[in-house]
């Protein structure tokens, strides 16, 4: 029970904003080393789901566990220390700080500071472009570079699970491909990945399993290959028949 080192486990999660309810009893499970996708239309609650997991929004009901720990009982700023890192929608870099300063903020947690130099060098090895631009203001990076920087910033806390919210949004097709290649590379490093995407065809190629979220409810789930072959999913999300 307590073992399950690094299993993310949500069940019956209700959440919303003020009077508005965005999630209705969502259940989801991500095993260590897995890559799991969440797809669904605009406004389905995908971002809300990730925000609940990283503690930015409190669930109104339901349970939320990571490696046996009850997440709902912890303040949001302690979750990076547990190994949860969240790359938010629209990247949310600090545009007036340099690339390296953005990475430093990512290593703010006490336990992460001791590993700053070593992790920064790993991020630079993964993204040589970031090393070239390390003294440049993040606001002056291209969209794809900003996504690299945002992922790098999240990796600075030494996470076990990486939550990615639409990493391909607003990027040119070639850059989208690079971002998905990157997700595959992050997996090879042994990280667990939970990725929200509108780009369903692409994301189903890099994840093991996926959930379909519609108006705050899970409407389908399964192995990525099965979902990609499902006629209903093909019709709604893949433009197929």
């Amino acid at each position: 029970m307590s073992g399950a080192a690094g299993t993310l486990d949500l069940s019956g999660v209700h959440a919303g904003y003020g009077d508005f309810q965005a999630l209705f009893g969502v259940g989801l499970r991500v095993e260590p080393g897995e890559a799991v996708g969440v797809v669904g239309p605009n406004g389905a609650g995908k971002t809300t789901l990730l925000r609940v997991i990283s503690g930015l929004i409190r669930p109104r009901a339901g349970t939320l566990r990571f490696g046996g720990q009850d997440l709902a009982a912890m303040p949001a700023h302690e979750l990076p220390g547990l190994g949860i890192a969240h790359v938010p929608e629209n990247r949310r870099l600090f545009p007036h700080l340099t690339v390296e300063e953005n990475l430093r903020v990512g290593a703010y947690a006490k336990a992460a500071r001791a590993h700053f130099a070593e992790r920064r060098d790993r991020v630079y090895a993964m993204f040589p472009r970031m090393k070239e631009r390390r003294h440049q203001l993040a606001g002056t990076l291209s969209g794809g570079e900003q996504q690299m920087c945002a992922i790098g910033r999240a990796l600075m806390s030494g996470p076990r699970i990486l939550l990615l919210d639409e990493p391909s949004a607003g990027l040119a097709p070639l850059v989208v491909k690079a971002v998905f290649d990157l997700v595959a590379r992050i997996r090879q490093e042994g990280l667990t990945v939970l990725i929200v995407e509108q780009n369903v065809a692409q994301v189903l190629r890099v994840v093991d399993r996926a959930y379909v979220l519609e108006t705050g409810r899970v409407s389908a789930e399964g192995a990525a290959a099965d979902l990609a072959a499902d006629p209903a999913i093909r019709r709604s999300y893949l433009g197929g028949h």
Binding site: L56, H77, H86, R92, F94, A112
Partner: peptide
């Protein structure tokens, strides 16, 4: 650095392990 960051974006700070 966190002080300079928070001046621009309060909401994401907890994601970096920062308690505003």
């Amino acid at each position: 650095t966190a002080i300079r960051a928070i001046a621009r974006d309060r909401e994401v700070m907890p994601l970096m392990g920062v308690d505003p």
